[in-house]
């Protein structure tokens, strides 16, 4: 019976070891902020962080997450970078249908944590795994650049 640490809280679940983290959180723990888009690590809608690094939770077995820090979109409001990114997403009116955006934000936060001042190419590289069928890419790019600026100012 794995114990999970989700956004700083300990949660007990009774699921098979190979069940993907995404479905554990969505169906068993009722945390539906992370989305199902492909189930094959192809779209990024399900992106969470494991010990701070973005992973595709649809292909991450729950057993691989036990004992590690899982953070999800629901936890981003209390994350310094997460908060700045969420604000930039609002200011740039990024979302259309919005379904992909939790995953986009999680990947962007992951990017900015390792690469505080990303180049256009680094944005392409990091975000290439996140599909937005509504086509919000130009605004996502603008929001990431704005968040990077804000974070740099805050650090000064």
């Amino acid at each position: 019976m794995p114990q999970l640490n989700v956004n700083g809280q300990t949660r007990e679940v009774d699921v098979p070891d190979d069940m993907p983290l995404l479905w554990v959180l969505r169906d068993e723990l009722g945390m539906t902020g992370s989305k199902f888009g492909c189930g094959m690590a192809l779209c990024g809608a399900c992106t969470m962080h494991l010990d701070g690094a973005p992973v595709r939770s649809c292909v991450t077995p729950v057993s691989a997450a036990a004992g590690r820090a899982i953070s999800t979109i629901e936890g981003m409001a209390s994350d310094r970078v997460g908060q700045v990114v969420q604000d930039a997403w609002i200011e740039n009116n990024v979302a259309q249908c919005g379904y992909c955006q939790a995953g986009q934000i999680m990947t962007a936060v992951g990017l900015l944590k390792t690469t505080p001042a990303p180049t256009e190419e680094q944005i392409d590289g990091a975000m290439g795994g996140n599909i937005c069928r509504c086509g919000t890419y130009p605004r996502i790019r603008a929001a990431i650049l704005q968040a990077a600026d804000r974070l740099a100012q805050g650090d000064e």
């Binding site: 969505r26 539906t32 409001a77 609002i90 009116n93 979302a95 919005g98 379904y99 955006q101 939790a102």
Partner: peptide, 27 residues
């Protein structure tokens, strides 16, 4: 005017069809 759901979307709190949950629900 911004989208009424804009903030909820960014926080993972907007409810899509995929996010419906009810007690005793099966899949």
């Amino acid at each position: 005017v911004r989208l009424v759901d804009l903030e909820a979307i960014g926080k993972g709190q907007a409810t899509y069809g995929m996010d419906m949950r009810l007690p005793g629900m099966v899949y």
